[in-house]
Design a protein around this nucleic acid. Sequence first.
DNA 1: GTATAGTCGGTATATCATTATCGATCATAC
DNA 2: GTATGATCGATAATGATATACCGACTATAC
Lengths: 218, 218
Amino acid sequence: MQSTLSKATLGRLPMYLQFIRGTDTEKVSAAQIARGLGLGEILVRKDLASVCAAGLPRVGYPVTVLRRDMEKALKMDGPISAVIVGAGKLGTALMEYDGFLDYGMKIAAAFDLSATAEPFFQGRVPVYSMEQLPAFCASRHVHAGILTVPAASAQNAADAMTAAGLTAILNFAPVPIRVPKNVTVHQENIALSLAYLHAMAGETKKQEKEKEYGSQRI
Amino acid sequence: MQSTLSKATLGRLPMYLQFIRGTDTEKVSAAQIARGLGLGEILVRKDLASVCAAGLPRVGYPVTVLRRDMEKALKMDGPISAVIVGAGKLGTALMEYDGFLDYGMKIAAAFDLSATAEPFFQGRVPVYSMEQLPAFCASRHVHAGILTVPAASAQNAADAMTAAGLTAILNFAPVPIRVPKNVTVHQENIALSLAYLHAMAGETKKQEKEKEYGSQRI
DNA sequence: GTATAGTCGGTATATCATTATCGATCATAC
DNA sequence: GTATGATCGATAATGATATACCGACTATAC
């Protein structure tokens, strides 16, 4: 258990969390997780040790403790609220996506230019006008947002989000956005991810270093 | 111009490509791209040099040549066809997503358990039954697929995809999937990406190493 | 009890990625 | 034509990450 988590480790924690959420045994070992995810056993052991000190030789980690510590490391002890900016096709699909709650994430609301002062509901998610974004984020202490607007308005929307106090943005618009230093952006260009994968698939034939399940990353 | 591209470089190429597609000048320099994307100038210069040898001092790279070489490095010289497996909310949203064509990607078809022998159309994309996946991929030489089925059926769908000859899978199901060694998987758990971002946003306050535009990754 | 096998945790090494530094090159200005 | 400044490309140094190794610990078997 250490205080400074490397970026790479942090990026793998979600995978581990996803895995141990799917285990029904009492204990789990680093080797099991490594096999299950196709990662190096030592790598997993080191990652686990950096977030949880409850590991016992010959036994492994108690699942409940490991999960709690991992959620703590990922700042998921409480439920995390996020907003969606852009109620187009993709934004609407995400509103109706039911996978968030399983991971302690909750879509608190959505915001769209076309919305009026009076919110309407898309599934269970209220859709407000963009003007209401700052007040909403401030009062509900929301710091994470998903950006699903067209490329042309991405920068404007991003500016509104950072102005509203969001510090984590998942950007589905197919353009990079400019944000202040203290904001973390994850660019999610699906088309280019596919292109990257396509290129990777061609390359890895040479490398042949991949494990049992191929390469995975978040 | 070198033959072996590092994984990290490969992951940044889409960002560069995205950027230079948005430039309307004749030439572009590594420094310009670096400033535009908030990356280190040296890093960008090295990445560009590894895919394109047409850079000239004081001038930079001719945009057309750079773009061509970059698309070649990403194996995007021709249009890439991909299929969507799972015609639920997310799958349907992606079918109607119009950002693919901009990047040389084309959704050739979708496949779903509920579909019948006679395909129906969702927007411009035909939806076939799962039985037709192998024949379709073989005849159209499709090697990339997007997986948008519920968690429970993710592994079955993935097996069908690998059996059909797909070697690049973008997995939106919230579970890791097992694939043969020669297949590359990109796990896209949106909920956990948000969690990662949320944790990162808390950490980066200490690090303070981020550049002008914060951190971005694909 | 004692041996054995599986697992953890820490240290050391190797690998990979990024940044810094330097000389070479080329257009522009004078 | 020469000086100047911007840029590239290569090499070297730093830093981050992943792997290998070793000792320590604990349950099970005998």
